[in-house]
């Protein structure tokens, strides 16, 4: 079980801001880091990898400062956003090259490299030169390199970039299983949907500052100034109208809207916890069965546009 702690970390590159006053606590499982280009995602990763030294503040990975720490490097696997290959090598050569740096003997390194590549579905092409690889195969090779020595911490910068859907799916399944093994995984992706599939734990970052971090549902609850909209759809569409009427009797429902064509009602409340607790009982009492209770408000799309783009009333 590995933990990563940022204590008020600022990193400037000359006069250019990397990240500013970032405090984080990342535990085991998958954590998604989201934000626009240039927001500071890669800088955050570089600081925790020990590739960059914080200008102010301190970082602890498993309790130690990662900058220039050798023991830690056996515990962290890194998949950078960009290609980072010796193009003339085959995937097996490439992965085993780095495994030898991790103090495996040549035979062990080749064996581990092959296993790791086969696990990622590259068995047919792993002896071919990387130069001939497609984008998806390149991503798999990078992931194989970062995971072949079984690190406890994985840092994945846009691992799905350019990957075809099959590769994307495979990588996600792998990430899920590594997460279940108790690895600490930090992942960035521009495809919010992918992150949502993998995890509820996110870090939203923009202009070098952390806007929010934690469970996305909890983050939404903290934004108490914006009412939550909940979509409900009863099985019997004749009950749409009575249900809205009944719900508007409660003073904690601030608005109700009827979408007849979609067979849904939308309720708005500032006291979401109260709503979620009492709503099943109300349904029981009124003998109404609903087939859907959802709020699009705490989806990553919605959180992202509210917090990062500042579109609070989208």
């Amino acid at each position: 079980m590995s933990t990563i702690i940022f204590e008020e970390v600022t990193k400037n590159y000359g006069r250019v801001q990397g990240i500013s006053n970032v405090s984080l606590n990342i535990g085991p499982g998958v954590t998604g880091i989201l934000g626009p280009n240039g927001a500071g995602k890669s800088t955050t990763m570089k600081v925790l990898l020990g590739l960059a030294r914080p200008s102010i503040g301190s970082v602890y990975v498993d309790g130690v400062n990662p900058f220039d720490n050798f023991d830690l490097r056996n515990k962290i696997g890194f998949v950078p956003e960009y290609d980072c290959f010796y193009e003339h090598m085959s995937a097996v050569d490439y992965v085993s090259y780095f495994l030898m740096i991790h103090d495996f003997s040549k035979e062990e390194a080749v064996e581990k490299a092959e296993n790791s590549l086969i696990e990622l579905g590259l068995q047919d092409s792993m002896y071919r030169k990387i130069r001939t690889y497609s984008r998806g195969m390149r991503q798999k090779t990078k992931v194989a390199r970062a995971t072949a020595f079984n690190p406890q911490i994985l840092v994945l910068d846009e691992p799905f970039q350019g990957a075809d859907p099959t590769t994307r799916h495979l990588l996600m399944e792998k990430i899920n299983s590594w997460s279940e093994e108790g690895k600490t995984i930090l992942i960035s992706s521009h495809i919010l949907h992918d992150v949502e599939y993998l995890t509820d734990n996110i870090i939203l970052i923009n202009n070098g500052r952390v806007l929010a971090s934690g469970n996305r549902h909890e983050i939404r609850k903290l934004m108490s100034n914006i009412p939550i909209q909940i979509k409900i759809s009863p099985i019997d569409k004749n009950q749409l109208r009575p249900l809205v009427k009944r719900m508007l009797d409660e003073k904690w429902i601030t608005a109700g809207r009827l979408l007849e064509s979609e067979g849904e009602i939308i309720l708005e409340t500032n006291e979401s916890e109260k709503f979620y607790t009492e709503f099943p009982q109300i349904l029981e009492d009124e003998k109404i069965i609903v087939e859907k209770i959802v709020s699009d408000d705490d989806t990553l799309d919605s959180l992202y546009s509210k917090l990062v783009e500042g579109k609070q009333w989208k």
């Binding site: 549902h217 979620y276 009982q281 349904l283 609903v290 087939e291 859907k292 209770i293 959802v294």
Partner: peptide
């Protein structure tokens, strides 16, 4: 309803 727990999502 009987467990008195919040039902955040059902779909």
């Amino acid at each position: 309803a009987s467990a008195k727990c919040q039902l955040y999502e059902m779909e």
